[in-house]
Amino acid sequence: MEANVGKTDRLIRIAAGLVLLSLVFVGPQSWWGLIGLVPLATAFINFCPAYRLLGVNTLGK
């Protein structure tokens, strides 16, 4: 697995993941908030499988 998630992309993924995950505990309290684990996981491992399929790399050189 070659890293393909850059710093800015990583910060956005962490923020989006935390917001989505908070939906489990506050607001509508829906289990759909667990989808927030996906952006969090891709942020922490610096790899996004969808980016690989699409040929996107936000990491730079």
Rank of each mutant, 00 (worst) to 15 (best):
P39F: 03
L23C: 12
S30P: 08
F25A: 15
W32V: 14
V24G: 03
I14P: 04
Y51E: 04
G36Q: 09
P49R: 10
P39Q: 07
S30V: 12
S30C: 06
M1L: 12
F47K: 12
A15N: 00
M1G: 12
V26T: 14
A16H: 05
L18P: 06
L20S: 11
Y51L: 02
L20F: 11
E2C: 01
P49I: 15
L59A: 12
G6Y: 02
A50W: 10
L37T: 07
R10H: 00
G55E: 14
A43R: 01
Q29F: 01
A15C: 00
L23M: 14
L37F: 14
N4W: 09
D9M: 08
G60C: 10
P39M: 05
I45L: 05
S22E: 02
A50L: 15
A41E: 02
L54F: 14
P49G: 12
R10V: 00
V26K: 06
L59G: 13
A3I: 09
T8M: 09
Y51C: 00
G17N: 06
M1T: 11
V56E: 05
V19A: 10
A3L: 03
Y51I: 04
A15L: 13
Y51T: 04
A41Q: 02
I35H: 03
L18Y: 03
G17Q: 08
L21P: 02
L37R: 00
V26Q: 09
F47N: 10
N46Y: 10
V5M: 00
T58N: 00
L11A: 11
K7H: 09
F44Y: 12
L37I: 13
R13D: 00
T42N: 02
V26E: 01
Y51H: 13
R13V: 06
R52D: 12
W31A: 14
W32Y: 15
L37H: 02
A41S: 12
T8D: 03
Y51D: 12
L54A: 15
L23I: 08
V19Y: 07
G55V: 13
W32P: 01
F44L: 15
G33K: 04
R52G: 05
V5I: 15
L37W: 02
G33E: 03
K61R: 14
C48H: 04
I45N: 06
K7R: 14
A43S: 09
G6C: 06
L23W: 09
P28T: 08
F25M: 11
L54Q: 15
L11E: 00
F47G: 02
V5A: 09
A50F: 08
F44R: 01
Y51G: 04
V19L: 13
N4C: 06
A43L: 08
V38Y: 10
L40A: 08
A50H: 00
E2I: 04
G27E: 07
V26H: 05
E2W: 05
N46A: 12
S22T: 06
M1N: 10
L53A: 15
G36P: 08
G55K: 14
A50P: 01
G17R: 02
A15Q: 04
G55R: 10
T8R: 13
L18E: 00
W32Q: 13
N57R: 10
G17T: 08
L59I: 02
K61S: 15
